[in-house]
């Protein structure tokens, strides 16, 4: 029997960038094992976490993600030997950059989830979803995407009106 789905005011959009060998397989296992986890997460599959460019994370936020998860094989288990070691360094650096420009790092989660860890996948996704839900929508990037460079800043009501008319 399914539990009645709890209703929420805000359903966050979570984008998960995962490697195909470990985390994708882990998420697949969670599915085939009929484990329940929030449907807020949308998976994007990559060959390896080493292929995940920080710009993908930016793009996800710009296109409306409220939270981003990056997940791959545990250290030592990479299908390509060292992809996740490189990713680990890159994301350690990228987090610092995002923090410095004012992004709340609570919206960004990194994890190692193996093909056998369906339970951990459920746990990671549930925790991130609930945390982001509590934080509310990610406004910053969406507002930026809407903002126009239209002869300087949109500071007057007339400009705003003209823009809205567009």
């Amino acid at each position: 029997m399914h539990h009645a789905k709890p209703k929420h005011e805000f359903e966050p959009k979570i984008i998960a960038f995962v490697c195909t060998w470990c985390t994708y397989a882990g998420a697949d296992l969670a599915g085939t094992s009929r484990m329940q986890y929030p449907a807020n997460v949308r998976l994007v599959k990559f060959p390896c976490t080493g292929r995940i460019d920080p710009v993908f994370i930016l793009k996800a936020f710009q296109q409306g993600a409220d939270g981003v998860l990056v997940s791959g094989c545990h250290p030592g288990d990479c299908h390509y030997m060292a992809g996740n070691f490189h990713a680990r360094r890159r994301f350690a650096a990228f987090r610092k950059l995002l923090e410095f420009i004012g992004v709340d790092l609570q919206r960004l989660q990194f994890s190692w989830v193996s093909a056998a860890e369906a339970g951990k996948w459920v746990e990671v996704v549930t925790e991130l979803t609930e945390r982001v839900r509590a934080m509310g929508p990610m406004r910053e990037f969406k507002d930026l995407a809407l903002e126009e460079q239209w002869s300087g800043s949109l500071t007057t009501p007339e400009l705003q009106e003209a823009y809205e008319a567009i």
Binding site: P54, V55, L58, L97, L98, I101, L144, E147, E148
Partner: peptide, 21 residues
Amino acid sequence: QMVEGTPRPAGNLAWHLVRAM
């Protein structure tokens, strides 16, 4: 197109982050 080429707030931020990275 990973980074918007137009000089608008969204593309500007992305450009400067990519550059720094």
